[in-house]
């Protein structure tokens, strides 16, 4: 471990280290991304979708997003399903999410606040 020689260096280390404990604090104020991980979801490729979301979050250094899973909600035909829940906003559910769509959802919806209407669950 390197010696911390100045206040600036200490602050730099604090910034880098924030990710270590970020997930354990103030989770109620963060955007929640919920990936359907029932047997149907996993079979349809939910894992790849989730890993893509995590990868994108890491690449873009987002610290206000949490990713969780949920079981089957009964719409197996539309799996992988991904919910995006921003604080104080209604839940948006995306269907048939793959690696590429997942990355777009992070960029467009989570970062730029634009819901991608074409991929949202149809009114059935």
């Amino acid at each position: 471990m390197a010696v911390i020689k100045s206040i600036e260096e200490l602050e730099k280390i604090r910034d880098q280290a924030k990710d270590l404990i970020n997930l354990r604090k103030d989770n109620e104020t963060k955007t929640r991304v919920v990936v359907g991980m029932g047997t149907c979801g996993i079979a349809a490729g939910a894992r790849q979708a989730m890993l893509a979301i995590l990868d994108e979050i890491k690449k873009r250094n987002l610290d206000n997003v949490i990713v969780t899973e949920t079981g089957c909600i009964g719409l197996c035909k539309y799996e992988p399903l991904v919910d995006v829940i921003k604080p104080n906003q209604p839940k948006v559910t995306y269907v048939n999410v793959n690696d590429e769509k997942a990355r777009q959802i992070v960029v467009k919806h989570i970062i730029n606040n634009q819901v991608i209407d074409d991929w949202v669950i149809p009114n059935i």
């Binding site: 280290a17 990710d19 270590l20 404990i21 604090k25």
Partner: peptide, 18 residues
């Protein structure tokens, strides 16, 4: 119950040594 006590960076992350 929040940080790992054996990792100084976790203490620093939560305003440690500030």
């Amino acid at each position: 119950g929040l940080i790992n006590p054996e990792v100084i960076e976790e203490y620093i992350a939560n305003d440690g040594y500030k």
